[in-house]
């Protein structure tokens, strides 16, 4: 067994070395689906960060009480509960974001990033390490979604976080707001990200 990494590496790996979106390509459904604007990407990222943090905490706390054969259904119930809580809270207090994210909020349940961290990390590590892991992965996911959303919004709509910098009827690359543009933008961002991180390393 290799030596256990310290908290700092544990935190940073989620943002850089094992970035869920640009390196591991996890959670592609929300990544491609909601990132038509920077605000949507940020909202989805924060909602996922919250669910990931809470599920990692709970899974880490109950890991010794769960028989191995039923661990997946147990984790899914935990995750689904927190997603439902997020959905209810968003509808009640941030209706605008709730409308924008729509169907993608319930789909956080099947975001393999969350189940993946519960299974691969939180069920094997103690509480502080799981919290740091969730924060690193969640922030990495949020940053990636915001950057992807910003790229698509700037190219496709000529605005950033809703602030337009081209006239209303200007011709923008509408392709980037449409689903195919999500794949194109993601692939080029992943290339750039991996180039940069490899150079630093």
């Amino acid at each position: 067994m290799k030596q256990t990494p310290g908290p700092k590496e544990n935190f940073l790996k989620g943002i850089i070395k094992e970035n869920p979106v640009f390196v591991m390509l996890l959670g592609m459904c929300p990544t491609l689906g909601v990132t038509s604007s920077a605000y949507n990407g940020l909202g989805m990222g924060v909602a996922t960060l919250f669910v990931l943090l809470m599920s990692n905490v709970v899974v880490s706390l109950i890991k010794t009480q769960i028989p191995a054969k039923v661990r997946i259904p147990a984790f899914i119930v935990v995750i689904a509960s927190f997603v439902t809580i997020v959905e209810m809270v968003l509808e009640a207090f941030i209706p605008f974001l709730y409308e924008q994210l729509g169907i993608f909020i319930p789909l956080i349940v099947v975001n393999c990033l969350i189940l993946g961290r519960a299974e691969a990390f939180a069920s094997k590590n103690n509480l502080p390490a799981s919290v740091i892991d969730a924060l690193g992965m969640g922030i990495g996911f949020t940053l990636a979604l915001t950057v992807l959303g910003a790229t698509r919004e700037v190219l496709g709509n000529g605005s950033l976080f809703g602030f337009r910098f081209v006239p209303e009827d200007a011709n923008t690359f509408i392709l980037f707001i449409l689903p195919p543009g999500a794949f194109i933008a993601l692939s080029y961002l992943a290339i750039a990200f991996n180039r940069l991180t490899r150079k630093v390393a």
């Binding site: 890991k63 010794t64 769960i66 028989p67 054969k69 094997k124």
Partner: peptide, 9 residues
């Protein structure tokens, strides 16, 4: 680093 789990009875 394995965590002791309850038996799957």
């Amino acid at each position: 680093m394995t965590v002791k789990k309850k038996a799957s009875s």
